[in-house]
Design a protein around this nucleic acid. Structure first.
Lengths: 202, 202
DNA sequence: ACCTGAACACCGTTCAAGT
DNA sequence: ACCTGAACACCGTTCAAGT
């Protein structure tokens, strides 16, 4: 029975399966080794089936990147919400963020380095004060630091951007091999955090 | 006469012409729109001529990325060597670096985001104390700051890495559209620099 | 509704043949 | 030595045809 109607095996689930399998293939082989032919073969469908759900490979990849970004964002959010100590939460976020990049270098490279992302203007829109992204939580944590007189009172969005930039820069340079101090990552973590904090705390 | 022997037009210069034209095409159309067919058509050679100089497209692209990286590096170096004030030189470097990224987003994305760069281990090798890259000069400027008692005496390589990470992170987030504060770039510059400096100066 | 598979225009790469 | 152009195996995308 089961093997008979494999025609409708992906009925309703193909769309999601395409994303998940793409995420796996990006991490194992890199983005540029993903082809619709390999992807659909892995899923047991014909290659034109993709076009029922996405208008082109580029649009599929965009959705994959969005999914990858949300994966990272979920990690960041839960870390930022865990515990009371504001500074400790910021420090932990940095560690989790950098660990994500080190553990998923191809995915990280893809979600942040892709040319298609130039026109993005969703989840991370800083102007959208009502959002619920990791960045929004980061801003909220900084504002909590303002109220508790732990963090210097400057524009929290700019402060969040500075913190994010530092962490993002470290992650990027690490996975691209521009930093060759694998044994010294902890020291880099400590110094970057100290540098950030001494610059923004009261 | 001239148009007659176009067969040897690129005699000896094709190798370099491939790099230069690739750099232009990356910036105007993005890396993924570069094909050997378009590239060689633009240069007036047959497409297999490329293989006289590079074993594959990937290896050509690697050389292009290296050339792009050196372009940025040259900018950085001259900025770091200009003037006496240590802090001002660091500040100027940041501005020049970020400007380069904003002016050449596709190139910047390519030289830093490419999957091929995982195995890189040349110019930026921090362990090579004798190098002459922008990063090495940055370390030297920091050491000058140590001698002049302007900058806190910690491992200069780690300090350089922290500074570079911040600037690189800002550049990356800006060109990927994760930061939507175009009108506020100056404020971001100021705050990030202030954050760095207040964290590392005496 | 959703899937199939042949067809099309592209791509990187190879290679025997030219000068 | 260096270049040519046909050939090969791949790719994304389209579309008439199936169920």
């Amino acid at each position: 029975m089961k093997s008979k109607n494999h025609i409708s095996y992906h009925h309703g689930s193909l769309k999601d399966a395409l994303i998940q399998t793409s995420l796996e293939m990006i991490e194992s082989d890199g983005l540029k080794n993903i082809t619709l032919r390999k992807l659909t073969k892995k899923l047991g469908t014909s290659r034109s089936a993709v076009y029922r759900h996405y208008d082109s490979k580029d649009i599929l990849i965009k959705a994959v990147i969005q999914a990858g970004f949300e994966k990272l964002d979920t990690n960041i959010k839960s870390t930022l919400l865990e515990g009371d100590d504001v500074l400790k939460r910021l420090y932990n976020m940095g560690k989790v963020y950098i660990s994500f990049a080190i553990d998923n270098p191809n995915l990280y490279r893809t979600i942040f380095g892709h040319e298609l992302m130039k026109e993005r203007e969703e989840s991370c829109d800083i102007n959208d004060a009502d959002g619920d992204t990791g960045f929004h939580i980061l801003v909220a944590v900084i504002e909590e630091g303002h109220e508790k007189n732990i963090i210097k009172k400057e524009d929290p969005i700019l402060q969040a951007t500075v913190i994010w930039s530092m962490i993002h820069g470290i992650s990027n340079l690490l996975i691209d091999g521009h930093i060759h101090i694998q044994d010294n990552i902890d020291a880099l973590n400590e110094l970057s955090f100290k540098t950030l904090i001494n610059g923004i705390k009261n």
